[in-house]
Simulated assay, not measured.
Amino acid sequence: MTIHRAFVATWLAAFALVACVLPDTAAADAGELHARHLQLREQLRNSPFGGALHIDSAEQPDRLQGDVYAVLDHSFATVSQALKDPARWCDILILPFNTKYCHAVQAANGPALQVRIGRKYNQPVEQAFRIEFAHRNVAAQPDYLESRLSAQSGPMGTRDYRIVVSAVPLDGGKRSFLQLSYSYGFGSLGRMAMQAYLNTAGADKVGFTIVGRDGNGQPQFINGVRGAIERNAMRYYLAIDAYLDSLSAPPDQQVQARIRGWFDATERFPLQLREMPWPTYASMKLQEHERQQALLN
């Protein structure tokens, strides 16, 4: 059976953004996340990413999961305020190159984000894949934040998507420890779509986990489905960090600051994340921001 490459690309573009409905109970608490920070102390201290950052991924027969752990140079109050707000999530999610549209709405069951994901960066927004998923704040405490995006099903037979972002204060609240976790389930159709991608457009792409060294001592990175989930995890972590960084700029410069910040951050990892030159990306994202603002006015 042959799967049309456009459908495969649509599925891959969407798979990093959709999330499933979870029970409204916290996945962890402040104590558990602080314990995880201590467990990862050496990995964070010796991180190869140029900052206190660690990526983990796992593959099961019918499920994939990726986790990013990072120490942020942003106060817990700033992180908590930003990630509690559905509209701010749209400011974050619009940064990756294939997000064409994001609009926060009040749906029947609570706050939701209407998102469109393009098969390619220059696809017209009306042709992009439409996703609506819920935003839930399941913990917004002085010492623990947990925010979720969720949807029950996705394209190409995928299901049970979950994105969970949690954070705790460090150094008396001056910094924050953040975990971004997402996973999704799949059946035979979803597995076939991913394999088709990995045999074509994704054949030469890699993730971030080092699985060995070549004869010259250069790192060899994980590939396949775990490589794909790690690339997506990094893109969305960098979007969160770029948004938080932009808050220190004057209000009329914040949009340009986060667009530039996300692009520059991805360029630190050209092997995994390079997609297009700066002028193309900047022009595209400014236009998409203007589209979002037109909807709000």
Score class of each variant (00 low, 15 high):
Gln65Val: 04
Asn109Met: 04
Leu145Pro: 01
Pro124Met: 14
Gly202Ile: 06
Asn109His: 02
Leu95Trp: 02
Ala203Gly: 02
Gly202Met: 03
Arg88Tyr: 04
Ala108Ile: 00
Val79Lys: 08
Val105Leu: 10
Cys102Phe: 03
Ser176Asn: 02
Phe129Ile: 00
Arg136His: 01
Arg63Thr: 05
Met192Gly: 03
Ala201Gly: 00
Ala108Asn: 01
Tyr69Gly: 05
Ile92Asp: 09
Met194Thr: 06
Ala104Leu: 03
Ile163Lys: 03
Met192Glu: 13
Lys205Ser: 11
Asn122Gln: 03
His103Ser: 13
Gly66Asn: 08
Asn98Asp: 15
Arg136Ser: 03
Ala87Met: 05
Ala151Thr: 02
Trp89Val: 02
Met192Thr: 06
Pro111Asp: 15
Val165Trp: 09
Leu145Val: 04
Phe97Ser: 08
Asn122Met: 04
Leu189Arg: 00
Ser75Cys: 10
Tyr121Ser: 13
Pro155Trp: 14
Val164Leu: 07
Asp143Gly: 07
Val164Gly: 06
Val105Pro: 00
Leu95Thr: 06
Met194Pro: 00
Gly190Gln: 07
Gln179Lys: 09
Ala77Ile: 00
Ile163Gln: 14
Met194Glu: 11
Gln114Tyr: 00
Tyr184Pro: 01
Arg63Leu: 07
Asp62Leu: 10
Gly110Trp: 04
Pro155Leu: 15
Gly190Met: 08
Asp73Gly: 12
Ala70Tyr: 02
Ser181Met: 04
Ser150Tyr: 00
Asn137Ile: 15
Gln106Trp: 13
Ser80Lys: 14
Ala167Gln: 01
Glu146Asn: 10
Phe186Ser: 04
Cys90Asp: 06
Arg63Lys: 09
Ala203Val: 10
Arg159Gln: 11
Tyr161Gln: 12
Arg63Gly: 05
Thr99Val: 13
Arg159His: 09
Cys102Gln: 08
Arg88Phe: 03
Val71Leu: 10
Asn137Met: 09
Asn199Ser: 11
Arg159Ser: 12
His103Lys: 14
Ala140Ile: 07
Ala70Trp: 01
Ser75Asn: 08
Ile131Leu: 12
Val206Cys: 14
Gln127Asn: 14
Asn98His: 13
Ala140Arg: 06
Phe177Met: 12
Phe76Glu: 09
Ser181Ala: 04
Thr200Ala: 15
Pro96Ile: 11
Asp204Trp: 07
Thr78Ala: 15
Phe129Trp: 04
Gly190Glu: 10
Pro124Val: 09
Glu146Gln: 14
Arg119Ser: 12
Asp73Leu: 06
Leu145Ser: 07
Gln152Leu: 02
Asp143Gln: 14
Asp143Glu: 15
Arg130Thr: 11
Tyr144Lys: 07
Ala196Leu: 11
Leu189Val: 04
Leu170Ala: 04
Ser183Trp: 02
Met192Ile: 01
Ala139His: 12
Ala70Met: 01
Asp73Phe: 06
Asp85His: 05
Gly173Pro: 01
Gly172Ile: 10
Lys174Arg: 13
